[in-house]
């Protein structure tokens, strides 16, 4: 843990991430804010009993998916674990459909049959939403296999956490991906805690960018709180994959502000640690600060963006609250084709 904390606080900024244009900053701000507000609303609705079961919020990690998606091209696939709401929103999946899936309603993206951890969109190239830690790594490698088999130039972006990085199938997948030069980017979202277990208590090698070394997969650590750094690293990795050089590992050093899931007592870390990350490294505040400093936007313009985002989230929440539950006949559909 100490290692990754100090490397972040030193803020290596080797070459400094490429600056964003005004449009890029505004885009990143809006996308990250949509995830933040959506997740806050989801947390609130969970508290009201409208969302059941497990609900894993992405608050704090927004820069990772937003930066990667800014680097990606149409056709690149995304697959992730159960902390998946941000990934779906950034793919362009309908916030109403996502929220209605969280509340288990018929207008949910999986007709209310999947829940928070299980949504998909072939049209948006989003392959889930998987509840078994690490399973998405082999599945995402399969998506890369399909790209390679078809000879297209798409890349599979495989997201998983520091916890999943200790599962055996991750390394089985790394081996085959490099052996067959599959176009997969393994994006390890290191938010420092696998549920309540810190990286230092779970990982013999806590530099996750090195986890592909014995397979000759290149990797690098990225400041996952800086959307510009994420996009720059993502662009490099995507180019590597598109050139047919095989897989690439990006360790995104990030942080989740909320608990592992909604019922997390958060006894494993101090409030000061969380507060420090929020105050000093918040991915949205960083962009907001630059927008104002560079005079890319005024306070009023940003307030207008906030209001628009809030309206989208409020509409999603209203839909998800009032949409009916699935028809009982749905119990028996979609088992086989």
């Amino acid at each position: 843990m100490a290692a990754s904390a100090s490397s972040r606080s030193k803020a290596p900024k080797v070459a400094g991430p490429a600056e964003f244009t005004r449009e890029q900053e505004l885009h990143a701000y809006r996308e990250m804010l949509l995830i933040r507000r959506f997740e806050e609303k989801a947390g609130q609705m969970y508290g009201m009993g409208l969302i059941g079961g497990f609900c894993h919020l992405y608050i704090g990690q927004e820069a990772v998916v937003v930066g990667m998606q800014m680097a990606a091209q149409e056709g690149d696939q995304i697959i992730t674990g159960y902390r998946d709401h941000g990934h779906m929103l950034v793919c362009g999946m309908d916030p109403k459909g996502v929220m209605a899936e969280l509340t288990g309603r018929r207008g949910g993206l999986s007709k209310g049959k999947g829940g928070s951890m299980h949504m998909f969109s072939k049209e948006k190239h989003f392959y889930g939403g998987h509840g078994i830690v690490g399973a998405q790594v082999s599945l995402g490698t399969g998506l890369a296999f399909a790209n390679h088999y078809r000879g297209n130039k798409n890349v599979s972006m495989v997201y998983f956490g520091d916890g999943a990085a200790n599962q055996g199938q991750v390394y089985e997948s790394f081996n085959m991906a490099e052996l067959w030069k599959l176009p997969a980017i393994y994006i390890i979202e290191n938010n420092r805690y696998a549920m309540g277990t810190s990286v230092s208590r779970a990982s013999a090698q806590s530099d996750f960018s090195k986890r592909g070394l014995s397979f000759n997969i290149p990797g690098e650590q990225v400041d996952g709180m800086d959307v510009r750094a994420v996009k720059a690293a993502g662009a490099k990795a995507l180019a590597w994959c598109r050139e047919g050089k095989g897989p690439y590992i990006l360790e995104m050093q990030t942080y989740r502000y909320r608990g592992h899931s909604m019922s997390d007592p958060a006894k494993y870390r101090s409030k000061e640690e969380v507060q420090k990350m929020r105050e000093e490294h918040d991915p949205i505040e960083q962009v907001r600060g630059r927008l104002l400093r560079e005079k890319f936007a005024t306070e009023d313009e940003l307030k207008a963006t906030d209001a628009k985002v809030r309206a989208i989230v409020a509409e999603a929440a209203e839909f998800a609250t009032n949409d009916p539950e699935p028809d009982p006949s749905e119990l028996w559909t979609d088992i086989l084709l």
Partner: peptide, 12 residues
């Protein structure tokens, strides 16, 4: 690993 890769390829 290869079962997962097969399933991922089938999903696509």
């Amino acid at each position: 690993g290869f079962a997962g890769i097969g399933v991922g390829a089938a999903m696509s």
